[in-house]
Simulated scan of single mutants.
Amino acid sequence: MADDKKLSHIDEQGQANMVDVTEKVVSQRQAVAVGFVKMQAHTLDMITTGRHAKGDVFAVARIAGIQGAKRCSELIPLCHPLMLTKVNVEFSPDPEHNKVHIKSLCKLAGQTGVEMEALTAVSVAALTLFDMCKAVDPSMQIGGIKVSEKLGGKTGHWLAEHDMEGTD
């Protein structure tokens, strides 16, 4: 399918360009991102029963995810620094598939979306889970990171069409 849309971070000369959002209307915006960390059953059990030697893995990963969202513009070169009003990071253990599902929600009232912040929150939370558990399970896999929903701006309400989260 042909798409007329241009890449917004490239100017007419093909140079990297931070998008000018000065004239955009301030609106309530939010984005939800998801991902997972797949691990061995004993690793998931250690985390969920609180027997991990490093302590509460979910608490540390949650704080890391929130910090990641807040620092997104420092990590992704052309992202605007945003005044986030809400960042939430949740973990859902899935013993049937030996996974921890991660979900983040980012909100603000602003001129540009918060998808990158939500994706960064999930990514940093997943990396932190990996870091805290790598000594007992170096074969863990991080996957399925995507935007699953967004609200606000000219797009309005958008939901991901296909759920590829279960693919490894």
Rank of each mutant, 00 (worst) to 15 (best):
A31L: 02
L78I: 01
C72F: 01
A59T: 14
V25D: 06
V37C: 00
T155D: 08
A109C: 12
C72D: 01
V114T: 11
D94W: 14
G65D: 04
T43H: 03
D163Q: 07
G153R: 15
P81C: 03
V34W: 06
M1K: 15
S92C: 03
G144M: 06
D20S: 06
A109H: 11
V114I: 12
K86S: 06
G35Q: 13
K38L: 07
G153L: 02
R71P: 02
S73P: 01
T85Q: 13
V89N: 04
M18S: 02
S8D: 02
K54L: 11
Q67W: 04
A109G: 09
Q28N: 09
A31K: 14
G110P: 01
T167G: 02
P81G: 07
S8E: 11
G110Y: 07
H52K: 12
G35S: 05
F91H: 03
C106Q: 03
M83K: 12
C133E: 10
R29W: 10
S8C: 14
V19P: 08
P138T: 12
G152V: 14
K54P: 01
K24H: 12
D11I: 00
N17Q: 05
N17P: 12
I142P: 03
S8K: 06
L119N: 02
S139A: 08
E149F: 10
L78K: 10
I63D: 08
A41K: 14
A53E: 06
H42I: 10
P77K: 07
I76D: 04
A33I: 14
V114M: 03
G65T: 09
A69F: 10
M83S: 05
G153H: 11
V89W: 00
L129M: 15
V60A: 13
V100I: 14
E74P: 01
D45N: 11
V21P: 08
E115V: 14
A160P: 00
V21A: 03
P81D: 00
L105C: 06
S8P: 03
D45S: 12
E74H: 04
P95A: 08
H80P: 06
L75D: 04
H80K: 15
I47M: 09
E117V: 00
T48F: 07
L78T: 02
D163S: 01
K103A: 04
M1V: 09
L119W: 05
G55D: 05
V57H: 00
A118W: 00
A16I: 12
R62L: 09
D163N: 06
G14Y: 00
E96R: 10
